[in-house]
C-alpha cells in the first residue's frame, strides 16, 4: 500500500484530515516529518508546485449510473475554481467524452475551461471513436503531440510525459503503447538525469490491475524499464473509475476517480461496466486529485478529494 505507512504516517488519517476547498489543509511528508499547510501555501512553497488531475468525465453519458455526467464535471470544476490558490496546471487522463461527438467535446471544453488552467490531455478509448478514428481528438487536443497524441513537457524541474495506450489494441490484449511510442519515449528520456523527477500519465493503468477486464497495458514493462534508472517516478492513470495505488521500487502508481460514474472493484461484478449506486451516494465515488511536488527527494504528495461525503 502506501509508502507513507512505513514512516509512521497513516495516509488514510492524513486524507481524512484534509478538506478540499476553502479552509483546505494539505498534509505532506518531507524528510519523514509530516507537515500540514494551507493548500495555497503548500503550493507556494519554495520551488514546489501543485497540479491537479481529473479523469473519465464521459461527457454525454446519461445512463442510470449518472444521468448527467456533464453536471458532475461541473461540480468538480466548481471545487477547482474554489481553491484558495491556483495550481500550476491540470491534467486530464482521458475519456473526456463518452462518444467522441463534437458537442460532447465542446461541452467538456466549456466546462473545464471555467477552471482557467492549462490542461494537458491524453485520450481514452472513448475519445477516439469519431468517424476518423481519433482525428477529432488530435485536432482539438493534440496540436503539439506526436503520433496518436503523446508528448512531454517540463515544469520547474519535473518532467511530465503524456502517453497514449488506447490505440491499435490487439485481440485478447489490454492497453497498448506500441513500438513507435516506446522508441519516442526512449529518445525523450535519454538526456534526462536520473535525479529528474518523472511524472507519467496515461489513460489505462500502466500496471496490471485486472487482466480479465483488460485493466493493464500489454507493453508497459518496456516503458517501465526505460524509467527504471530514475529516482522518482509517479504514474497517474484513469480508466478504472476508482482509487488504487501501488509502489514498486521507485515507481508509485495511482489510478484516479472519474467525475462521471464509478466502476466496480475487480471481481466484484460480472463486468467492469458503470456501477449504479444510490443517488445520494454517487458523489462519494467521484472526485478530483491534487498532486504537490516539493524538491526534497520525497515522493510527490497525492491527495484525492471526493465531490461529496
Amino acid at each position: 500500500m502506501s509508502r507513507d505507512e512505513g514512516r509512521g504516517v497513516d495516509r488514510r488519517q492524513a486524507l481524512e484530515c484534509m478538506i478540499w476547498a476553502g479552509t483546505g489543509v494539505l498534509w505532506t511528508v518531507a524528510g519523514g516529518v509530516p507537515k500540514s499547510a494551507l493548500l495555497g501555501t503548500a503550493q507556494a512553497a519554495e520551488s514546489g508546485f501543485a497540479f491537479l488531475q481529473i479523469s473519465d468525465s464521459h461527457v454525454g453519458f446519461d445512463k442510470p449510473a449518472n444521468p448527467n455526467a456533464l453536471g458532475t464535471l461541473n461540480e468538480a470544476i466548481d471545487k477547482i475554481v474554489a481553491l484558495p490558490a491556483k495550481p500550476a496546471f491540470m491534467i486530464h487522463t482521458g475519456d473526456i467524452s463518452h462518444l467522441s461527438k463534437p458537442k460532447q467535446f465542446d461541452d467538456a471544453d466549456q466546462t473545464i475551461g471555467r477552471a482557467k488552467l492549462d490542461v494537458h490531455y491524453v485520450p481514452g478509448e472513448h475519445d477516439l471513436i469519431d468517424e476518423d478514428n481519433g482525428k477529432a481528438y488530435l485536432e482539438r487536443y493534440g496540436k503539439n503531440a506526436k503520433g496518436a497524441g503523446w508528448y512531454s513537457f517540463d515544469q520547474q524541474g519535473v518532467h511530465f510525459i503524456g502517453l497514449v495506450n488506447v490505440v491499435n489494441l490487439k485481440a485478447g490484449g489490454m492497453g497498448n503503447l506500441g513500438p513507435e511510442q516506446l522508441a519516442w519515449l526512449a529518445d525523450d528520456l535519454k538526456d534526462k538525469s536520473a535525479s529528474t523527477p518523472i511524472v507519467v500519465f496515461a489513460h489505462i493503468p500502466l500496471w496490471t490491475v485486472a487482466p480479465e477486464w483488460g485493466w493493464g497495458t500489454d507493453d508497459s514493462a518496456q516503458a517501465l524499464a526505460l524509467l527504471k534508472r530514475f529516482g522518482s517516478v509517479t504514474v497517474l492513470n484513469g480508466h478504472i473509475h476508482q482509487l488504487m495505488q501501488k509502489v514498486e521500487g521507485q515507481v508509485s502508481f495511482y489510478t484516479a476517480r472519474s467525475t462521471a460514474f464509478p466502476q466496480p472493484k475487480p471481481g466484484a461484478a460480472p463486468s467492469p461496466g458503470p456501477m449504479t449506486v444510490p443517488a445520494g451516494e454517487l458523489r462519494k465515488y467521484l472526485g478530483v486529485r491534487s498532486v504537490v511536488y516539493h524538491p526534497t527527494g520525497e515522493p510527490l504528495a497525492v491527495t484525492d478529494a471526493a465531490l461529496a461525503g
Binding site: 489494441l169 485478447g172 489490454m174
Partner: peptide, 27 residues
C-alpha cells in the same frame, strides 16, 4: 462504435472462421 442498442450487420459468404474482438475493450 456501437452505443447502447445500436446494431451492426455482417454478411458472411465465405466459409471459414472469423475471430473478432471489441476495438475498445480488446479482451
Amino acid at each position: 462504435a456501437l452505443d447502447t442498442n445500436d446494431t451492426f450487420q455482417v454478411t458472411f459468404d465465405q466459409p471459414g472462421e472469423y475471430n473478432y474482438y471489441c476495438g475498445l475493450h480488446s479482451h
